[in-house]
Design a protein around this nucleic acid. Structure first.
Lengths: 130, 130
DNA sequence: ATCTAATAGTTAGTATGCTAATCATGAGGC
DNA sequence: GCCTCATGATTAGCATACTAACTATTAGAT
């Protein structure tokens, strides 16, 4: 999948993590931007990981950072350029997703999702105890 | 799983890739060592990736490199220390594997394996065409 | 009011794996 | 014999994500 992504996204010079991050912002932003922490939780990565990606996107002009309600929390939101980038990239991304699951029935996919959820919950539990 | 591995393997200062590589060597070695290329294929990583890991293991004294039948191909095999390390680490590794699939029936797991194989073959195909 | 906890974010270091470029050697064709 | 191509391996650079350690700020307890 990573290889497929790189193929389709070569012309946009947008990495997978950057794309995921932009999608996260547009999904969560309700008009006032979103904090890096919320975004990290949503994307299942550490704050530290997100921090670096977000900085790159800000530097590239696809995201803006504004001060939030207090001095330690910020707010990220899409710029015009960021919105445009998403408009251009969402189609190849959906194509890749379709391509990936082609040939697999809904039942099979749902089954697989259930297994993955089980594994995640189970491992997280073992982790906490261990 | 990565977190679980790190927990169990902390005392051995052996990374996951290093452990996998040692296991690969003991599985493939039929007495004369194994070439890095064979090993890389077996582990589904690029030769370049394996090269770095193998160098680290050689430097640590867990593997040795010997010249092979011709001057460009080498042979990797376990040292005594490497064998000892595997003996010490194989138990926690198997424990982790057991722990991971605990609560999942054989049917479910086989089903999942089939799905993953399908995905891999399918994506590889799309890759070549695209 | 002050000391301590928790929260938000960043930086640094590490692990893993990739591709592209390079070097060295080997094999085949002519 | 020499040129080209294939093979084996390495190095360098990038992407991703982690933990640990740090700065800064806020909130809560006494």
């Amino acid at each position: 999948m990573a290889a497929g992504f790189d193929q389709r996204f070569a012309e946009f010079t947008l990495t997978q993590a950057q794309f995921r991050t932009l999608v996260g912002v547009i999904m969560l932003d309700r008009g006032e931007g979103i904090t890096p922490s919320e975004l990290a939780d949503h994307l299942f990565v550490e704050r530290a990981t997100l921090s670096v990606v977000a900085q790159a996107l800000v530097k590239r002009g696809l995201l803006v950072r504004r001060p939030g309600e207090n001095r330690r929390s910020h707010r990220l939101s899409l710029t015009e350029a960021g919105t445009l980038m998403l408009q251009q990239t969402i189609t190849p991304a959906l194509e890749l997703a379709d391509e990936t699951v082609k040939g697999l029935s809904k039942d099979i996919l749902q089954n697989m999702l259930a297994v993955l959820n089980h594994l995640e919950a189970h491992l997280r539990l073992a982790q906490k105890k261990g």
